[in-house]
Design a protein around this nucleic acid. Structure first.
Length: 415
RNA sequence: GCGCGUGUAGCUCAGUCGGUAGUAGCGCCAGAUUGUGGUUCUGGAUGUCGUGGGUUCGAAUCCCACCACGCGCCCCA
């Protein structure tokens, strides 16, 4: 048997209704903030990600699905979408269009990692980007958007972590200070940290080994090394978030894995997700456009939500079965009734109801099916009803049945 | 990519010291007289024991490899 390949999966009903629920809620919230959808290709030239995400990152150096096209061009399935969005922004000269570019996307991404709970090789991200402004107002707003999406999808108790990673003017100095300090203490740390101290000093801050935590707490904080402009920017973001009533935790150890981030970075974690407890990550990327070869600057900020993880976070209390609930199981008895029932089904659907027409001839069998499908109502249409000009509507949960005129029936479903 | 664990019916699982698979539960199908489900009762179907090798007279059981999933590491959504 051929099976879905490692790290990919089928999303079947009724679980797929959770995904629809999440995506519908996202679109609605995005509309409220006047973000509009952008759809970019799921594969791009490899160079886009190498330059955008950073050739030294794990994503680019070992996790991409890459192959050579027939003309020799190196092609890669997108591992994330921000680089593509900025590419589209530059390519189509969106900077020439008035106003800030506020874009959102929903779609699959690909990374060749070891699959785990909440980590797949094909996974879906919901993200948004606001391009064209360096203002901290935009930072606060996009964080608000991100949290609104989570909330409207039904995520309970999201935890917002906030940091600033500085800019090309101040971050190198911080890294230097960090590296210097590590030289004197790294021999007391775990093997991984000793390695990171030389290769990627920022990563030491992310270490989860309990014995290392005291040392890490004593390391220099980037908060103390921000330049004046970054410091002011960050202070304004915090003030705005507080004005919006958004709770956050400063996590000066929060460093992100993508090279393009500057200034504000943030992450949302959620319990009950296991080791992959990060549900959302984002940040500002003021230099990304230039590093992709743009002649015009395109400062921006964005985030992406792991849709698989988002669904996982809500499936305990948002029931997929209820989202895809069948309203009416329509039971027709006899050929005359069947003709009648098909037309009635059409009217009920027009009124907004979810309707299935029974294929069973025996009422008993049809009722059994209605029960198994968890229909709200069984609607019985036979010779008796046709003669009397009424419809027998049975409430499956209550077990009660009533005779209704067509008008009363349609009114029941909001027509 | 590394370490640990798991893999038997559609699902959850039992299976002794290696002796040729279970009346198991749930689900599914069919019945219990003619237009009414859920509870109950009766009957029934379904397995390459993850895959491929090896050891053995004999392997679901022991060994090896591979695959998939889970947990952790790395890293990240």
């Amino acid at each position: 048997m051929i099976k879905a390949i490692r790290g990919t999966r089928d999303i079947l009903p009724p679980a797929s209704s959770l995904w629809n629920h999440v995506e519908a809620a996202t679109r609605k919230v995005c509309h409220g903030f006047h973000y509009q959808e952008i759809r970019t290709p799921i594969f791009e030239e490899t160079a886009l990600f190498a330059r955008g995400v950073g050739a030294e990152t794990d994503i680019v150096s070992k996790e991409m699905y890459t192959w050579d096209d027939r003309d020799g061009t190196s092609i890669t399935l997108r591992p994330e979408n921000t680089a593509s969005v900025i590419r589209a922004y530059i390519e189509h000269r969106l900077d020439q269009i008035p106003g800030l570019k506020k874009l959102y996307y929903i779609g699959p991404m690909f990374r060749r990692e070891r699959p785990q709970k909440g980590r797949y090789r094909q996974f879906s991200q919901i993200g948004a980007e606001c391009i064209g402004s360096e203002s901290p107002v935009v930072d606060a707003e996009i964080i608000e958007l991100a949290l609104d999406i989570l909330q409207s999808c039904g995520v309970q108790n999201p935890h917002l972590l906030l940091n600033s990673v500085g800019c090309p003017a101040c971050r190198p100095q911080f890294i230097e200070a960090l590296r210097e300090r590590l030289q004197s203490v790294k021999h007391t740390m775990c093997a991984d940290c000793q390695r990171r101290a030389d290769t990627n000093a920022l990563r030491v801050l992310d270490c989860k080994v309990p014995e290392d935590q005291n040392i890490i707490d004593s390391l220099p904080s980037i908060q103390d090394h921000l330049c004046e402009a970054c410091s002011k920017h960050f202070a304004t973001v915090r003030t705005l978030l507080e004005a919006l009533g958004i709770d956050y935790e400063i996590r000066s150890r929060l460093v992100r894995g993508l090279d393009y981030y500057t200034r504000t970075t943030f992450e949302v974690t959620h319990g009950a997700l296991g080791a992959q407890n990060s549900i959302l990550g984002g940040g500002r990327y003021d230099g990304l456009a230039e590093s992709l070869g743009s002649r015009v600057p395109a400062p921006g900020i964005g985030f992406s939500i792991g849709e698989d993880r988002l669904v996982m976070a809500i499936e305990e209390h948002v029931k997929a079965e209820d989202l895809a609930r069948l309203d009416v199981f329509l039971i027709a008895m006899g050929d005359a009734a069947l003709h009648h029932a098909a037309l009635l089904a059409r009217e009920l659907r027009a009124a907004g109801a979810s309707v299935e027409l029974s294929a069973d001839h025996k009422v008993k069998r049809a009722m059994e099916t209605a029960n198994k499908l968890n229909a709200k109502y069984a609607l019985i249409l036979g010779d008796n009803e046709i003669a009397a000009g009424v419809y027998a509507l049975k409430d499956m949960a209550a077990g009660t049945q009533e005779s209704l005129s067509k008008e009363a029936l349609l009114a029941r479903f909001g027509a």
